[in-house]
């Protein structure tokens, strides 16, 4: 194995870590966003939930931005193929993210249109939560690709059963994660409501996991035989069971840690099946985009690795520090 291959493999993992970091961190504020209209019964509830995510949601979203930038830098062909191929779907996500970014601040300061901004935040959180999973399902199942690496399908190619199942699985994971974070950060009736919703959505998450597993068997040949995939699945199942047990007790930290862990298990499953491919080609054409045929040069990957090696430890240190500053229940 030469240096270039090692770097390509490292970058496959690093982008996986960025995506996992994005789902663990932004996942809970996306989940709270979607559930806001149902979880918050009055203005104080809304302020409490906004304040729970206010100091951190933007930093959380940077994980997505950085994952996008890193994909661009490390595997430009995958970035180009997926983003131009999934044009309308991605634009929908972008419109959603635009509304989402402004709606907390606008809800607070544009009083006459509060219900509009509340729903803008909810729908702006819903679309990315669903569509990122759909996109993942597509690149895993395979999309029609030309021999010049271009997507040859249409918007409706993306809406196949397996990608939709993956999208709904991701969405339900995000919903449960939002509930466990909301329960962690709030008190009183709002806290109890968040916990109850968490318990109910937990069942939905479990059902979606089973459906996705069955569909993997149907649509992804060999997927149920991968040992790494089963290790990932074991992590998901164990974390879900432990999380569910602790949801019934007084501790709010364990369920949140467990839903966080379940995302890492989910990415483990996806990553172990997908490696070394980034975008699979449909129809047995063999025109897959892999880390080997889509990557940047050895020098660029090295420079990027240096940047990540210096930068990411710093990011982790001050992110953890910031979370510690805002730890504990929100008090208004």
């Amino acid at each position: 194995m030469d240096t270039l291959q090692v770097l390509q493999i490292i970058w496959f993992f690093l982008i996986g870590i960025l995506l996992a970091g994005y789902s663990v961190l932004d996942g809970f504020d996306l989940g709270i966003g979607i559930l806001l209209p149902f979880m918050a019964k009055d203005k104080n509830d809304t302020v409490a939930l906004f304040t729970a995510i206010g100091p951190v949601w933007d930093g959380n979203e940077v994980w997505l931005l950085t994952a996008g930038g890193a994909l661009f830098a490390a595997f430009p062909h995958a970035y180009a193929t997926v983003f131009s191929g999934f044009y309308l779907a991605l634009m929908l996500v972008l419109f959603a993210l635009i509304f989402r970014a402004v709606s907390l601040e606008f809800w607070s300061l544009d009083e006459p249109r509060r219900s509009f901004w509340k729903w803008a935040f909810a729908i702006g959180s819903l679309l990315p939560s669903l569509l990122f999973g759909v996109a993942l399902g597509n690149v895993v199942e395979g999309i029609p690709l030309s021999d010049s690496m271009e997507f040859t399908g249409s918007f409706f190619t993306l809406l196949r059963p397996f990608p939709i199942a993956v999208g709904l699985t991701g969405l339900s994971a995000i919903l449960v994660h939002g509930c466990t974070y909301a329960a962690l950060k709030t008190e009183g009736p709002l806290h109890d409501r968040a916990r109850l919703m968490g318990k109910r959505l937990w069942i939905l998450f479990l059902i979606m996991l089973i459906i996705s597993a069955i569909m993997s068997g149907l649509y992804l040949p060999g997927s149920l035989k991968s040992p790494l995939g089963w290790i990932g699945a074991a992590v998901v199942i164990i974390s879900l069971v432990i999380g569910r047990v602790w949801m019934g007790r007084t501790n709010d930290k364990v369920p949140f840690l467990m839903t966080s862990l379940s995302f890492i298990g989910l990415w483990g499953i996806a990553g172990s099946y997908q490696f070394p491919h980034l975008v699979k080609a449909a129809g047995g054409s063999g025109l897959h985009l892999s880390i080997y045929n889509s990557s940047s040069s050895e020098l660029t990957l090295t420079v990027m690795l240096t940047i990540a090696a210096i930068g990411m430890p710093m990011v982790l240190v001050y992110t953890v520090y910031a979370y510690r500053i805002f730890k504990g229940k929100v008090n208004l």
Partner: peptide
């Protein structure tokens, strides 16, 4: 992308 992507990632 070999050149242009890196500064965007570094910005993040």
């Amino acid at each position: 992308g070999d050149i242009f992507g890196a500064p965007l990632a570094a910005e993040g």
